[in-house]
Simulated assay, not measured.
Amino acid sequence: MTRYRYFTAASLDGFLADEDDSLAWLLVQDHDEDGPGSHGAFMAGIGAMVMGATTYAWIGEHLRTSGEAWDYEVPCFVFTHRDLEPLGEQVTLVQGTPAEHRAAIEEAAGARDVWMVGGGALAADFAEAGMLDDVLVSIAPVTLGSGRPLFPRRFALRLTDLGRNGGFAVATYDVVGPPTQW
Rank of each mutant, 00 (worst) to 15 (best):
M1D: 13
N165S: 11
V137G: 04
T54C: 01
H31L: 14
A53S: 15
E19N: 13
L16F: 07
G110D: 11
G37I: 01
D174H: 13
G35P: 02
L162P: 05
L63K: 11
I46H: 05
A108T: 04
L16R: 02
P178F: 01
D21S: 09
G52I: 03
G177T: 04
A140F: 02
V94L: 11
A104D: 14
L157V: 14
D71T: 07
L23W: 13
G67D: 11
E73M: 08
H31D: 06
A24W: 04
D125N: 13
A127M: 13
S146N: 14
L150N: 01
E128F: 05
A121W: 04
P152S: 12
S38Q: 06
P86M: 10
A10D: 01
L26V: 08
H31M: 12
T8H: 01
E85D: 14
Y4T: 00
M116A: 13
I139T: 13
I105D: 02
R158C: 07
A57R: 15
S22N: 13
T55Y: 03
S38R: 05
L150A: 05
D18F: 08
R154Y: 08
S38P: 10
M131T: 02
A99C: 06
A108R: 02
I139S: 03
E128T: 06
E85W: 05
D161A: 15
E73H: 12
G47D: 06
L93F: 12
A9I: 09
E128Q: 15
L122E: 03
V135N: 00
P86T: 13
R158H: 09
A99T: 13
V74R: 10
P98A: 08
W115R: 03
P86G: 11
M131N: 02
D32W: 09
A140I: 03
A53L: 04
A121Q: 15
D133V: 09
T54I: 10
F155Y: 12
Q90Y: 01
T2L: 09
E107G: 08
V176N: 05
D18R: 08
D13R: 10
L93R: 10
L132V: 10
A127Y: 01
L132Q: 03
A24G: 15
F15Y: 15
Q90M: 14
R5F: 01
R112D: 11
E128M: 11
A140T: 09
R5D: 00
G52T: 02
R3F: 05
A9G: 09
E68W: 07
E107Q: 14
M51P: 01
T92S: 15
G35N: 05
D161W: 11
